[in-house]
Amino acid sequence: MTLRQSPLADQHRALDANLVEFGGWEMPIAYPTGTIDEHLACRNGAAMFDVSHLGSVRVEGPDAFERLQATLTNDLSKIEPGRAQYTHLLSEADASVLDDIIVWWHPRADGDPDVFDVMPNASNTDDVVAAIGGRETTADRAVIAVQGKQARDLVRPVFAAAADVKRFRVERCDWNGVECVVAGTGYTGEPGLEIAVPTDAAPALWEALLGAGITPAGLGARDTLRLEAGLPLHGHELGEGITSLQAGLGWVVAWDKPQFHGREAALAEREAGVGRKLVGITTEGRRPARADCSIRVDGSDVGVVTSGNFSPVLGHGVAMGFVPPDLAVGDAVEIDVRGKALPGVIADMPFI
Rank of each mutant, 00 (worst) to 15 (best):
D16C: 02
D16T: 03
A17L: 08
A17K: 03
N18W: 04
N18P: 07
N18S: 09
N18Y: 09
N18M: 03
N18T: 15
L19Q: 04
V20H: 11
V20Q: 04
V20R: 11
V20E: 11
E21I: 02
F22T: 00
F22P: 05
F22H: 15
F22C: 12
G23I: 02
G24R: 08
W25D: 05
E26N: 00
E26L: 13
P28C: 12
P28Y: 02
I29S: 12
I29P: 01
I29Y: 08
I29R: 10
Y31H: 09
Y31L: 02
P32A: 06
P32C: 10
G34Q: 04
I36F: 04
D37R: 02
D37C: 00
E38A: 06
H39Y: 14
H39M: 02
L40G: 00
A41S: 09
C42L: 00
C42E: 07
R43I: 14
R43M: 12
N44R: 13
N44A: 11
N44L: 11
A46I: 10
A46P: 09
M48L: 13
M48W: 07
F49P: 01
D50V: 10
D50F: 13
D50Q: 10
V51P: 00
V51Q: 03
V51L: 15
H53K: 11
L54N: 01
G55A: 03
G55W: 00
S56N: 02
S56V: 05
S56F: 02
V57Q: 04
R58P: 11
R58M: 08
R58D: 12
R58W: 11
V59P: 01
V59D: 03
V59Q: 03
V59L: 12
V59N: 09
G61P: 07
P62T: 13
P62R: 03
D63Y: 12
D63G: 01
D63M: 15
D63E: 14
A64H: 06
A64G: 11
F65P: 00
F65L: 15
E66F: 04
E66V: 15
A70Y: 15
A70Q: 15
